[in-house]
Amino acid sequence: MLELRLVQGSLLKKVLEAIKELVTDANFDCSATGFSLQAMDSSHVALVALLLRSEGFEHYRCDRNLSMGMNLGNVSKMLRCAGSDDIITIKADDGSDTVTFMFESPNQDKIADFEMKLMDIDSEHLGIPDAEYQAIVRMPSGEFARICKDLSSIGDTVIISVTKEGVKFSTAGDIGTANIVCRQNKTVDKPEEATVIEMQEPVSLTFALRYLNSFTKATPLSETVSISLSSDLPVVVEYKIADMGYVRYYLAPKIEE
């Protein structure tokens, strides 16, 4: 028996919008720790890891570990039927091949349930060890989204370079080149507007912009984003979900031949 009640149902709607472009089908794993997902895009270039901790739910019952295969486009269709203020409850019985999403309006005058068929998905789980990153950049998520969007109108790839001067995003294409430098800026009115660079050593890596643009679908989940970079490792782009967990995207760099 699984029953997860999330008062801030809009979070779940935003999570689906954040991952459905990158991943088509995925297994949602439910355990005492929380509601999680790890999935790669079809070309295995990018990976998304989601965690919604059990403590973040108003009610969390998960009698045994359960993995539920879902088509994310279909989940998104179901969740789009929930109002933005609705409380969302996810329910499944042991051994059942369906999951139910229940939507309650804030004043309880409308209750809807949507039952969706589960599917068998052969997904590979990758072990991602904790790593020390050479540089971690924290910046406003809207600013990062803007940079990725702007650069992708010029080129297909971006070189992200971190030095003690700041973080530089560079691209080149048929019509020309572009460089955007963001300097560390801690002296802002609100902490979420700061750009903070923690650098152990300078690092420079090249990435495909279309994946980074896809990651920025998570922008509504968090006002800030952190970008962790190391030579010879995928970049980690993390959006924290207030008090509950995170959506982390991993993107393999371009490798010099």
């Binding site: 790669m40 070309s43 295995h44 270039v45 990018a46 990976l47 590979e124 789980h125 990758l126 072990g127 991602i128 090249t206 495909a208 010879d232 490792l233 995928p234 991993y250 393999a252 760099p253 371009k254 490798i255 010099e256 031949e257």
Partner: peptide, 14 residues
């Protein structure tokens, strides 16, 4: 020239 890496170049299946 550069080639696009994949997750398998960096992480092991578990």
């Amino acid at each position: 020239d550069s080639i696009q890496g994949t997750m398998y170049d960096f992480y092991e299946k578990c």
